[in-house]
Nucleic acid binder design. Structure first.
Lengths: 196, 196
DNA sequence: CGAGCGATTGAACCAGGTCAAACGGGGTGG
DNA sequence: CCACCCCGTTTGACCTGGTTCAATCGCTCG
């Protein structure tokens, strides 16, 4: 909450939002996707969660005063302070709790079933909520997609290639610079639930 | 909330706690473990979460008025109404939110890594919190353990056999009646974090 | 231009899935 | 009381989807 670490604002793909043990408040994701990681004793990172637009980040800090996870932007993000000072805390909190359970269930689903399905579902979750048929998005690095789905980068790459062959995905301006990939996605071809 | 569906009380292994769409309130698990499932259009169940002692069940009903998941007891459970009428709602809610994120991360971990590790971690989560070295517990049906870890029952069975061979697990009175299994577990041999 | 980094692709291997058979014990009906 | 069935579990043999290892590519940056 202190102004010393006001996270409101935008984050570039790959940039750190907060780290384990830092103090600060909670925010809501207005746009983009965020990954959480635990950091164990020897500094090893382990994927611990995925949050997208509308989800709350750093909710645990409301209680512990410190963040339990490391949060990193998977795609360009915009964050706003939460809960909004003026409003009904109880309602906001209960709502955040409900969303958290939903989010958890969806993330869990990214680690079950065949590789191609998992990648497809993940892309579905990363798509901006503007529901047009064709969307252009910058996908996260394969390493992130691999961590999230509990696959290897090679398998994720092969799955993406398969999606291209099926015409669901289309490389936009080819991969750019550091290898990051921008794609056109035929959203209609992805069977997404787009809940809530 | 309404007395028409007060879930306080005990549930046997395998018994339904609530179903999708039913109305009711939230509870805290005093003892035992619960699995959540989503139910899709054609009635197919899909594992959606795991909650253990201290976790909140049905938090989404505080907002939606109805449950979004089906909840089933994995092990004998005792539930109490939540939040406790008297106390600080805000604190309870924020605390529940923090726990939900933690729980989500741990459940996610049950679907990553080698089969034997996953099963070991799962057992670690199901152990009663009384931290003696050797514990006797009734494990959930293999089907449940398989759904949770995203493995097959055959693989779970083989993993359990391996744990027995390593002396970490010891079949108590052999499997009983319907095949359910009671084991002695050498808790000291399981590398658990037992957080919070 | 060369170094560096992420992505891609190929080939060999293996952990876990799949299929199938058998087991153990409780419940049921004769 | 016993024969039979049911259901969850166990174990074996085989198969395959995904991992692993390794080589190459595309693009940026120094």
């Amino acid at each position: 909450m202190g102004p010393e670490s006001d996270p409101s604002g935008t984050y570039r793909r790959g940039s750190r939002i907060h780290n384990v043990g830092e103090s600060g408040g909670a925010w809501r994701i207005a746009e983009g996707a965020v990954r959480f990681d635990t950091v164990d004793a020897d500094g090893r990172l382990e994927f611990a969660g995925l949050a997208t637009a509308g989800d709350i980040v750093g909710g645990e800090a409301l209680i512990y005063g410190r963040y339990s996870f490391r949060a990193t932007a998977l795609t360009p993000c915009r964050m706003v302070a939460w809960p909004p000072g003026h409003a009904d805390d109880r309602g906001s909190l209960a709502h955040a709790l409900a969303r958290a359970e939903e989010r958890s269930a969806r993330t869990l689903a990214l680690r079950g079933g065949q590789a191609a399905e998992r990648v497809k579902r993940l892309i579905g979750m990363l798509l901006p909520t503007t529901r047009s048929t064709v969307v252009t998005t910058e996908l996260p690095p394969l390493k992130d997609m691999a961590d999230i789905t509990s696959l290897t980068i090679e398998t994720v790459s092969r799955s993406l290639s398969a999606l291209q062959r099926q015409g669901i995905l289309r490389p936009e301006s080819q991969r750019r610079g550091n290898g990051s990939k921008v794609c056109q996605i035929n959203a209609a071809a992805l069977p997404i639930l787009a809940a809530s």
